[in-house]
């Protein structure tokens, strides 16, 4: 009995404290070091925040470089396929161009009318000040089972602050949750931690909650509200972060929202610098 306990104790101590050969550090010393780093990071002091920001910037750049092969091959395949279909695409685009030319006049008229109506309502067109919208490239898009986020190549140097809304083609994508000098992390709408106030076509209010899957869900809908298919969902702007009326997605019969922008297919996004500046 005592021999068995002694064996256990020797094996246990050896696993924790053993060094030598390739092992220059014992497991115990590294556990202590990891705990120190963890608590310094969690209870960030004035010293740790810039250090973490610097490490983030460096690692994100290295990640972008290291991921080049994984981006190159799928892209090369798409490029070859698109090259082979260039003639057909040209014909198709000509037809589309004609169609859009005929629509252009109509759009011009509607834009004018829209702006006049907004002036009447004393509201601001959310894309009025285009100089405050910046384009950012997605550096890292690691598909984690737990966190749905992307890293973009613009940070505090470009004026990005925490909480700013991120869009693609004017469709809402997420918001900035971490800023470094040269990069930022964007929390996507489908992340479990994402909650945004939205409004539905029939002006019903709800909260769009990320579910961890590709389709977020609607919560806190009015009582007895029946969800139908293909109802447009917009940001309500009640939180003061997202611009009211920014399109988000469409509902399906399961009560989920199919986002207009596929969160797994982002390469460029825009950050709206207007919102937070108004607050500051």
């Amino acid at each position: 009995m005592s021999v068995s306990r002694e064996d256990f104790s020797i094996a246990f101590r050896s696993a924790l404290l053993k060094r030598g050969g390739a092992q220059k550090f014992s497991v115990l010393s590294l556990i202590f070091l990891a705990l120190i780093i963890f608590f310094l990071d969690v209870y960030g002091t004035k010293f740790t925040k810039p250090v973490r920001g610097f490490i983030n910037d460096v690692v994100y750049r290295v990640t972008f470089l290291a991921s080049t092969p994984t981006r190159f091959f799928p892209q090369a395949g798409k490029d070859i396929a698109s090259y082979l279909n260039v003639r057909e695409e040209n014909e198709r685009l000509k037809v589309e161009l004609e169609k859009y030319k005929s629509l252009e006049l109509n759009v011009e008229f509607l834009t004018e009318e829209n702006q006049n109506l907004q002036k009447i309502l004393e509201t601001e067109y959310f894309n009025k000040n285009l100089s405050n919208i910046i384009l950012a490239k997605v550096l890292v898009d690691k598909n984690s089972p737990f966190l749905k986020s992307i890293i973009i190549n613009k940070g505090t140097r470009a004026g990005i602050l925490k909480g700013m809304p991120v869009t693609k083609n004017n469709y809402l994508v997420g918001r900035v949750v971490e800023t470094n000098y040269l990069s930022s992390r964007v929390l996507l709408l489908n992340d479990l931690n994402s909650r945004i106030p939205v409004t539905l076509d029939e002006s019903a209010q709800a909260i769009l909650s990320g579910s961890g899957s590709s389709k977020p869900i609607l919560e806190y809908l009015p009582e007895d509200y029946e969800i139908l298919e293909d109802i447009n969902v917009f940001a309500s702007g009640k939180d003061g972060i997202f611009t009211a009326g920014t399109p988000v997605g469409k509902t399906n019969l399961d009560g989920e929202v199919e986002l207009f922008v596929d969160p797994n297919q982002l390469s460029f996004v825009t950050v709206n610098l207007n919102i937070k500046k108004k607050d500051n």
Binding site: F25, S26, L30, I31, A34, F38, V59, Y60, S149, R185
Partner: peptide, 24 residues
């Protein structure tokens, strides 16, 4: 061990977790 520890720190930065947690 040291390499595994550093790899954990890198993983935390890339995934957006507090640093040191993957190492632990």
């Amino acid at each position: 061990n040291g390499h595994i520890f550093v790899a954990g720190l890198i993983n935390d930065v890339v995934m957006g977790f507090p640093m040191g947690i993957s190492s632990l």
